[in-house]
Design a protein around this nucleic acid. Sequence first.
DNA 1: ACGAGGATGCTCT
DNA 2: GAGCATCCTCGTC
Length: 176
Amino acid sequence: MLDGSVFDVAEALLGCRIATAFGTLRTEVVITEVEAYAGADDPASHSYRGRTPRNTAMFASPGTLYVYRSYGIHWCMNVVVGEEGLPHAVLLRGGTPFVGSETMVDRRGRADHLTDGPGKLCQALGVTGDHDGSSVIDGPVRLIPGEKQGMIARTSRIGISVAQDRLWRYVLEDGL
DNA sequence: ACGAGGATGCTCT
DNA sequence: GAGCATCCTCGTC
């Protein structure tokens, strides 16, 4: 599933879940918002100019987690996609709390806006740079396949200043 | 609901 | 030394 094109995989990840379990604290989120980053073909990608110390995990096998620090403060996570050595990845931007929302409230320090942004998502799930390079198949941060329900909207990606014409953000419109 | 502005520190030029 | 794949708070409407 993770070895397809980054665009197909981005769409397929909607409705799947991300789960963590640290000690007795278990949290799980249904993925509802993602962005595709297409490596050397994508000026907005961290791997556009090739390999660096930071983006090394992007060059590993599909299913590897790429976690980076954003604006000096937050962590953001991607799932590496496509054949090994091709630095394509899907940024997980948001979701819906599914398991352990009390733990998420605790980690976030507030009761609202738990997982509606890439930095918030990582904070709520307890994902940090320690998890960079781990596997979402058998590592501490797991991807659980799921079926999406609802319509998919496509928009340009958030927070970037280049390649705005590419509609590589995918959002699951929830009819709730 | 929405927008402006500041915090913050790593990464690469 | 500039530029961020962001978030929060505090203004307005």
